[in-house]
Design a binder for these strands. Structure first.
Lengths: 223, 223
DNA sequence: GCAAAAGTGTTTTCAATACACCCATGG
DNA sequence: CCATGGGTGTATTGAAAACACTTTTGC
């Protein structure tokens, strides 16, 4: 069993779509590729898997190495195994989603000067290398299913956020507009968030109330 | 890039939970292991991945080799990468679910005399080798989510089935009882099935009407 | 005082649930 | 005629959807 031929050796990599909310918009972290193939294209962070680590360990390390972020919430999404998805090698890719709240991101953003990274709104993605556009789309679909059936977005939001901000992110991920009154009614009725009694001053129009997620997480069907 | 060290070589396998309905009960196909480790235990069918095939091709071949079944409907479920899930080697496993209708199964069942296979009700599973119990449970959870959000069970049912049979399988997978009247109302209202005007004679009690799934598949939230 | 965005309540509609009686067959 | 399982209708409940006006701030 342990003497399998060379044709059974495979390379496996992890790839991760790290999402955050910045200025009320859902963004994904991409790296700029500095060598051929796909030089100059943007790609998802990730790493080749060693044979003494799990996929989850590997992707956690990759996130730290390439972004400086620790304690990123991750979930496995899908495994891609097309023969020619990498022109040089046969590499199988297992994709993950990662979620970080924007306040954490601000702190860590400056730490990796040697790697070119950028956040992109999921509505305005650049040209991606390899099959990463396809993979990212699937990761977004996965996220969409998750937010319908759980309050996973809690992870993305710092302690103070407004309901219009929260609603905007739901609309972005679900790809449709939601009624403001019904959204408030529903979310407040779910008993997941609480009023901070602060207000979001300094913007146009009436200031929005600031909320925070409660500590206890209940998994509920939201939509 | 193509000269990665040995530590980046990994073995990958596929594993599949093939489900069918037999005598109105959801069953899964298992193989009996004939050599150590886990000799005599039951395991999920699957195969080691070669570096010139996709996971989907590999699992399709595995299904044919080990069961004689062709054209099995498959979906990828999850990838398992614990270091010690196989005591001999480090092997990463990608699990799939497969669905076959019971009439097809009957025809092919006799073709593989050299491999010991058996169907087990998902309520009465034997002792499984490796981490296959864990994987099978996850596959069943995946199936559960699928049948809530789609009419995937269409694949499991031959042209003639009764609503009580269909209901029984839903109850088995969901793990709870459903009201007969509401189940009928809902399923008939979904416009997915049609009356064959035949009856299921020869059993106790009033004969049940036989239905068939319509050809056009609409993906709808069912429960 | 006006533009801009936030906050609020009511009505309608539809799906989910709960529930009890009659029907067709085999023995 | 009786045991067994299949088939049917109605009333209630609760969530989702549709919808328009008022409030608070910055300028």
């Amino acid at each position: 069993m342990s003497s399998l031929g060379k044709e059974y050796n495979n390379h496996v990599e992890t790839l991760i779509s790290i999402f955050t909310i910045d200025k009320g918009t859902l963004q994904v972290l991409l790296l700029r590729k500095k060598s051929e193939p796909y030089k100059g294209y943007w790609i998802l962070p990730g790493n080749i898997l060693k044979n003494n680590e799990t996929l989850e360990d590997n992707v956690t390390d990759a996130v730290y190495d390439k972004t400086g972020l620790l304690n990123v919430y991750i979930e496995q999404c899908y495994t891609f195994s097309n023969i020619d998805r990498d022109p040089d090698n046969r590499v199988i890719a297992t994709s993950f989603i990662g979620l970080v709240d924007s306040t954490t991101v601000e702190i860590k953003r400056e730490e990796r000067k040697n790697i070119e990274t950028a956040w992109f709104s999921i509505d305005e993605l650049p040209k991606l290398g390899y099959d990463h556009e396809n993979i990212l789309k699937r990761d977004i679909e996965y996220l969409k299913k998750k937010i319908i059936n759980s309050n996973i977005l809690k992870i993305l939001f710092p302690s103070d956020f407004t309901l219009p901000e929260l609603q905007h992110v739901y609309e972005q991920i679900l790809g449709k507009e939601l009624d403001r009154r019904n959204f408030r009614k529903k979310f407040i009725g779910l008993d997941l968030i609480e009023d901070t009694f602060e207000k979001n001053i300094g913007f146009n129009g009436r200031p929005a109330k600031l909320y925070r997620f409660k500590d206890d997480i209940k998994e509920i069907n939201l939509f």
